[in-house]
Design a protein around this nucleic acid. Structure first.
Lengths: 225, 225
DNA sequence: GCTTTAGGTAACCACAAGGTAACAGTAGAT
DNA sequence: ATCTACTGTTACCTTGTGGTTACCTAAAGC
């Protein structure tokens, strides 16, 4: 994760950057707006942390320039200006966050991480052996071949994923799949069979295991807990 | 823009909601976590504002449940707990922002608006295969031929673009297209059919896919992981 | 060793989800 | 006032799903 840190007080900057780097956040540093613009023209950042009061070009101006240029890199203002009007100015210029000095380093770090997430795809991916599942996209692959599941089959798989690698008892599964009806005795049995034939291909190791008398589990091998 | 406001002090909530609504932010209100969960099961919100200390279910627990369920609605904590540890807890549970009481109403409003933007497309141009969409100008081209959509057709397309390449369930789509009415059962079906005939031309690969029993998705069928 | 029971496998069919087309009411334009 | 075209409604058709039933296999119990 790469951050552009723009701040004219060098000692504060140094201290902060040192902390952030320990937290796995790499930093480029600029001590004024113009220098920041230069760096921005040749680098892509996950987040920009911006002081407001700076020589040459202040943070507000820089943020405005950026955003109106169509750059959507998230901006956090980090400034001693704690008046409401300043904050509102910051947000109206398109900033994503506004933190006032004095601040606590871990909080800044947490906020940077939130913003860095923002542009990443929000897909939740589940992987186990050669099984790849993208939950938001409803896409399932087994050894790079797409597997098509129907709605009920899909809810069974999701329930198993939610509990994996733990064993899920049949009652819990039934409630997850048919929330507002009492399913008849054999429905789950049939459903598990169908999903198994689709997911556990003959040439692959099986991932859906039955623990007799207990429940079903999605994991690489049946033995051990 | 629709916000879920969860807060157990009724007078503070009332005051805040009144202010937000003047600022064009519609609010649903819950005074505890359980009630919030109920509302969340039947509504889709742009942002959730969460108090921490509440009867029945506290805000941290609620946020944890939501996020681990795969719900990506942005969460702001709004609480008197201003200790660093509390903030870090909030962020580690997946919250997008954390504001401490006492707070200023316009700042809350600004922060809500930032988060509501978050799920909107960042770019005014959307491209997929031979489909080119300029969202601001409402211009749509398929293989360089302009496509003219009506207002409702356009809002369907926008909703699909917002979620692409993820699958959108029918309820979410209906809420996005007809925000203040319960659409009759077949309206969406017909609308999708109409948009499909306009966008998915016979000689091109189809981009609007139905995931039976789940929803609609706008994407190419290329196998990504 | 025999019985019992949980679970595996297979085929069947009603029906719901979705696709398509035609029609009607209504709002906006001229 | 008239016309147009958009939106919502209804009807009909197609197909895949999901529930059902039946039968089989293999553990577990006695």
């Amino acid at each position: 994760m790469l951050v552009l840190f723009v701040e004219d007080e060098r000692d504060l900057a140094e201290l902060t950057i040192e902390f952030l780097e320990l937290d796995d956040i790499e930093c480029d540093y600029a001590d004024n707006g113009e220098m920041a613009l230069n760096l921005l023209s040749s680098n892509v950042y996950d987040v920009i942390v911006l002081d407001v009061n700076m020589p040459k070009m202040d943070g507000f101006t820089l943020c405005d320039k950026l955003k109106s240029k169509g750059d959507h890199t998230p901006v956090i203002f980090l400034t001693a200006r704690d008046a409401l009007d300043d904050k509102l100015t910051g947000f109206s210029l398109g900033a994503e966050d506004y933190l006032t000095k004095p601040f606590e380093l871990p909080e800044l770090s947490a906020r940077i991480k939130v913003l860095a997430q923002r542009n990443k795809p929000k897909s939740t991916i589940f992987e186990l052996d050669t099984l790849h599942v993208n939950i938001q996209q409803c896409k399932i692959y087994r050894s790079n071949k797409e597997v098509l599941l129907t709605r009920t089959q899909w809810s069974l798989l999701k329930a198993l994923i939610n509990h994996s690698p733990n064993v899920v008892d049949r009652i819990t599964l039934e409630n997850a799949i048919w929330p507002d009806q009492i399913p008849s005795k054999d429905m789950l049995k049939t459903l598990v069979f169908r999903v198994r034939t689709l997911i556990d291909l003959p040439q692959e190791q099986s991932l859906i295991h039955t623990i007799r008398g207990t429940g079903i589990v999605l994991r690489t091998n049946a033995n051990g807990t």
